[in-house]
């Protein structure tokens, strides 16, 4: 039996349901009862219960694409800051996707301190030590572009249902975007004015993430800025 509506705002300790539901993130079970553990919107789908949090830090999960910044290097790789309680470790071999002879090759030619890297979380162990890889196309060191930061809980909204929001941003904004699950977003584009417009749009999405009809409003806003033209 459910005690709340779908999309309802819940607070920690609030009773959500009783019975044999499958409990996902943001909720926990105590005997027969299911309670919320975070402030968020209830996402109820059949037997599945999940609370979409409205606040919180990025916690690395296997398979996530993140945007990191190199903060340290060691013998065989680099430490990346992911704007999370945990740093990520990227080995040279996971960046270049080949065996690297560390005696013969100087790995500092590939990445240096402060570089922005698109990477994928290869593995997270129970002590939250994070292994990254950056071998897939489009990953690795980022050249040019603009780096923007939004709250990691708002990332699903930036992407939208089946990528609808992201497509709007890219098509109307005439930019290319790369969204990291940790809330960092890279923007590349020709027109600096449109890049700034997309940044504005991202901030708007972050502010109004839990309202409906947002994709249309973003579309309108970008179209308006575009039609105004450069002066």
């Amino acid at each position: 039996m459910l005690h709340i509506q779908n999309r309802e705002l819940v607070v920690p300790g609030q009773l959500i349901a009783e019975g044999g539901y499958r409990v996902h993130e943001g909720a926990f079970r105590e005997g027969e009862q299911v309670y919320a553990s975070v402030v968020g919107l209830a996402d109820l789908r059949g037997q599945d219960i999940q609370i979409i949090p409205l606040q919180g830090r990025y916690i690395p999960k296997r398979g996530d694409v993140v945007i990191g910044v190199v903060v340290d290097s060691h013998y065989s790789g680099w430490i990346l800051d992911m704007d999370s309680p945990y740093t990520g470790n990227l080995f040279v071999s996971d960046l270049l996707q080949r065996k690297v002879d560390l005696v013969r090759e100087d790995i500092n030619q590939y990445l240096s301190m402060g570089d922005v890297v698109v990477a994928k979380v290869k593995d997270v162990d129970e002590r939250m030590r994070v292994q990254l890889e950056a071998g897939e196309p489009g990953m690795g060191r980022v050249e040019g572009g603009k780096l923007v930061k939004v709250s990691p809980t708002k990332v699903p909204r930036v992407i939208g249902r089946k990528g609808s929001m992201l497509n709007t941003l890219q098509d109307v904004g005439e930019c290319r975007l790369r969204v990291g699950q940790n809330g960092r977003i890279m923007i590349w584009g020709r027109d600096p004015r449109m890049i700034n417009a997309v940044v504005e749009a991202l901030l708007m999405i972050e502010r109004e993430a839990h309202t409906s009809g947002l994709t249309d409003r973003v579309h309108l806003m970008l179209e308006k800025i575009k039609s105004e033209g450069g002066e």
């Binding site: 607070v11 943001g26 975070v38 402030v39 949090p53 606040q55 830090r57």
Partner: peptide, 8 residues
């Protein structure tokens, strides 16, 4: 709770 820390 406002920080999004999970609580019982």
């Amino acid at each position: 709770a406002d920080a999004g820390v999970p609580m019982r």
